Computed example of a mutant assay.
Amino acid sequence: MSTQEQHNSSGAPVPIRRRLSPAARRDEIVSAAVELFAESGFDGSTRDVARGAGITQPLLYRYFPNKESLIEAVYARVFLESWDPAWDDILLDRSLSVRDRFQRFYEAYTESIFRPVWLRLWHFASLRDAEVYSWYKEVVQEQILKPLVRERRIELGCDQDFLVTPVELEAPWLLHGGLLNYGWAQQVAGNDDGDGRAEAIRQMLEMYMLFTEARYATPS
């Protein structure tokens, strides 16, 4: 993000601050942090974030008292606000098979998240920031993977227990993680093949359906 700068008596650049409301200023700081962290990872400094937002570092700390609070805001912006509430209805629409509704969901979900900024931040979090990645994993489990397990159990005529065990989550994580790795590989290769993405989703869901049919199906 480019900003205008002036220089102090020592020759150091000082950003020219634009007048913004507190909400707009906070939003601009988060946008600058998203851009920086997507390029350099969560090791990027608050000084560089402030420079990207066109403000001083002390002003940044008036909005975010420490780097951890800024990272939390970036996490909320990228990983939470990208969730479309309409997806909840798709996941629980029992007029469709589990396979069909999760196909619809994952096509919409990956269309939304298979973007350079999202994928780069997910990649950096998975490699270097255990806390951010743990936040992300918790949301994925609660919003996507546990509903998948529960709905598949019901479809196969098994118990309708709300509890989902860690063992039951292993296969859904392979499915979800495989799709994210597919998206990352496509991003690195510079590809954006919607048909290929839909087919990859179909194949991974097929493997999950076959696996769960063997695990959960009631013996005849």
Rank of each mutant, 00 (worst) to 15 (best):
E28I: 00
L96Y: 08
R153F: 03
A108R: 15
E155Q: 13
G183C: 12
I55V: 12
Y136M: 13
L119M: 12
S95Y: 04
A189N: 08
V164L: 14
R152A: 08
D161Q: 13
R120W: 05
E35R: 06
R26W: 10
Y133L: 12
G196Q: 06
E170C: 05
M1V: 10
Y136F: 14
Y208Q: 12
Q4V: 15
E199F: 13
S21F: 02
A214N: 10
E170G: 00
L36C: 05
R120V: 02
L180D: 05
E213V: 07
H123Y: 11
S126K: 09
D93R: 14
D89Y: 11
L210Y: 02
A185S: 13
L210D: 00
A24E: 11
Y182I: 04
S95K: 13
T218H: 12
D193M: 07
A217H: 10
D161H: 09
R197G: 04
E5C: 09
V74N: 03
I16K: 09
P85R: 06
P219A: 12
L92Q: 00
A76P: 02
D27G: 10
S97H: 09
F37H: 03
I29R: 02
R150M: 12
V140N: 05
L127D: 04
L210H: 07
S2M: 12
V139C: 08
V30E: 00
F37Q: 01
P85V: 04
P13M: 10
H123T: 11
K146A: 15
I154T: 03
V117S: 10
L127R: 15
S40M: 11
A171M: 13
D159I: 10
N66M: 09
S45R: 10
E142L: 12
V30D: 00
E107I: 07
E213M: 10
R128L: 04
A12R: 14
F42S: 02
V139G: 02
E68D: 12
I71A: 06
L20I: 01
Y109C: 06
Y182C: 10
D161I: 11
A32H: 01
I201N: 06
H7C: 09
Q186I: 05
R19C: 04
S126C: 06
S69G: 04
F79M: 10
F37A: 03
S40N: 05
V140S: 07
L121S: 05
F124S: 03
T110V: 14
D84H: 08
S69D: 05
S40I: 14
A185C: 08
V139M: 14
S134P: 01
D84G: 07
L20H: 04
P116G: 10
G190D: 02
E168C: 13
R152N: 00
G54V: 04
P58L: 11
D129W: 05
S97R: 14
R77Q: 12
W173E: 11
Y208R: 03
I29M: 13
A53D: 04
R101T: 08
L92M: 11
A198T: 04
A214L: 12
T46H: 00
G52N: 12
P172G: 01
T56G: 10
L205C: 00
I29K: 06
Y106K: 03
P147D: 11
E168V: 08
L163M: 13
R197E: 10
I71T: 03
E111M: 08
G44D: 04
L205S: 00
R215L: 15
